[in-house]
Design a protein around this nucleic acid. Structure first.
Ligand SMILES: [Mn+2]
Ligand SMILES: [Mn+2]
Ligand SMILES: [Zn+2]
Ligand SMILES: [Zn+2]
Lengths: 136, 136
DNA sequence: CCAGTTAATGAAAATTAGTTTCATTTGCAG
DNA sequence: CTGCAAATGAAACTAATTTTCATTAACTGG
């Protein structure tokens, strides 16, 4: 796949991909680097970052948004359970409450054996203002 | 609300909350600090961080998970559009593909005027293994 | 209102994460 | 093979976040 897009197939890229493919967990760049170095000492953390950017860009790896790593906050307007629709251009946020995921949640719980505790749902899009601005 | 939970109502906490409440955007700790300092010079960035942690903990503010700030990756197993169910204990990830949000997406688009481009959906829960481990 | 207690703060250092630069290496097309 | 551009690693650099600790100030009880 890398080749097909004109990227070179280097040992470091192989190694990073190998670690990610082997693991069932999600790993941070640091963790990936640690594992890479075991077999390939000398591989730099920089290359791990570069490879991850590349792979994410190509859609070969997924990001997981667990926990409070993401730092961007706003007031909780409706105080209860709700979700966000965020403008990908200006960042404006609209809240909404009806997500109706109970059906899906129940099925997932049955299929996987997980005891589901909650969910994160966010839509991204372009707000009316930003859309208008484009056609000016 | 702070008082009710036994926390002191300090000027810095007021200030942070005030900035967040005023703004319609989501703000990073740094941005919040900048605005706080305008009216209250001398307030430390540290306090902003501490206050944010507190408020998030109490559920008074929302996090927004936009963009690639979160660094945790795993191989994209099903290559197409899909979502994650993450164990909140050990981090194990299950992929699933049927999210059926078209209905909601359409309604949101109509109600808000946003041109919706995509969504992020993640469930959190405890995997069978971790659940079993509890009852040992 | 006042003093005492103790949670909360700010300065500074320490840690951690991520990016940039640049000389050197290496994959790969020819 | 050879040559060259892409990719790498070391190191410096920037930015974000946490820890430590002496000082301050919010609240409690009188
Ligand atoms: Mn919200
Ligand atoms: Mn996935
Ligand atoms: Zn917008
Ligand atoms: Zn688990």
């Amino acid at each position: 796949m890398l080749r097909r897009r004109g990227y070179r197939l280097t040992t470091q890229r192989r190694a990073v991909l190998d670690v990610i493919a082997r693991s069932r967990d999600h790993l941070t760049p640091g963790e990936i680097h640690q594992q890479v170095v075991r077999r390939h000492p000398g591989v730099g953390l920089v290359s791990v970052y570069r490879t991850l950017a590349l792979l994410a860009d190509m859609g070969l790896i997924c990001e997981v948004h667990v926990g409070g790593n993401c730092r961007s906050y706003l007031l909780r307007r409706p105080l209860g359970h709700h979700h966000h629709l965020v403008c990908s251009d200006c960042g404006r946020v609209v809240d909404f409450s009806d997500c109706d995921l109970g059906q899906l949640e129940k099925r997932l719980a049955e299929d996987t054996g997980y005891e589901i505790e909650g969910h994160l749902l966010e839509f991204a899009g372009r707000c009316p203002d930003c859309r208008a601005a484009t056609f000016t």
